[in-house]
Amino acid sequence: MSRIAARFQSLAAQGRGALIPYLEAYDPDLETSLALLKAMPDAGADLIEIGMPFSDPSADGPVIQAAARRGLKAGATLPGVLAMVAEFRKDNAETPVILMGYLNPIEAYGYDRFCTDAAKAGVDGLIIVDLPPEEADVIEKPAEDAGLDIIRLVAPTTSDDRLRYVLSHASGFVYYVSITGITGTRAASTDDLKAALPRIRAATTLPVAIGFGIRSPQQAATAASIADGAVVASALLATLADTLDAEGKATAETLPRVLEQIKALATAVQAGTVSADQPA
């Protein structure tokens, strides 16, 4: 069983959903982001998403755009991101790691070689924002051969027919983009989420995680209990950005504050309370 499937299964047995925090590789530098990655499981991360910085993140809001710029400025490359994961795997064999990014750097790396190298480094799944199933033939076979899950995004605009089509190309889990918009800009209501989930469940047996617009512990807890997991990205990156000095360098505050936020999110997710009418 893959690390992703095993993790969702054990969380289901505990009767709670997953907290999936996000970090941008090399943001603001390799050392800091690697230290953050290594500390995330103890802070309460059930799965971890690592952003692969891209020069033109056209589906991301200002917070992730800025994080990607910092990562690139610090020298992020795909080999560098994979080396980070390999380093993390030395001490952690259980926490699933998902890489999220855009297609072009992977195409430049080479699909076969990338999937092989990513699996070898200890990556479990890929989320490629600008790769709909219509174009996914370039990577589906190499990913399957390497044992990597291709995690599919679905959105409120995805019709029932299309859900069935998209999810027939999915593995690992399903990432429900809870709003029509870019990352970190607005939030869906609890009612919207409650209405959306049965639609997705009808089309797949995979676990469902909700992302885009989840900021507070309460929102994370709500999303993780309505679905099977909550992804928190922009809120953590905004905290990280807030701790940087005038030159954009990490400070003594950087790690503690981001980890403290992850702990607060984890505590709420583990308590598993659904807030009645709070936006999720």
């Binding site: 056209s58 589906a59 297609l103 924002v129 600008d130 790769l131 709909p132 219509e134 174009e135 599919r152 995004l153 679905v154 959105a155 409120p156 605009t157 995805t158 019709s159 299309r162 998209v166 983009v177 029509t180 918009g181």
Partner: peptide, 21 residues
């Protein structure tokens, strides 16, 4: 029909939110 020229160029590389559009 996939929007490819010569089987490779072109295509539809957009986020799922945009695919239905």
């Amino acid at each position: 029909e996939r929007g490819h020229f010569g089987g490779w160029y072109g295509g539809r590389f957009v986020a799922e939110t945009l695919m239905p559009l």
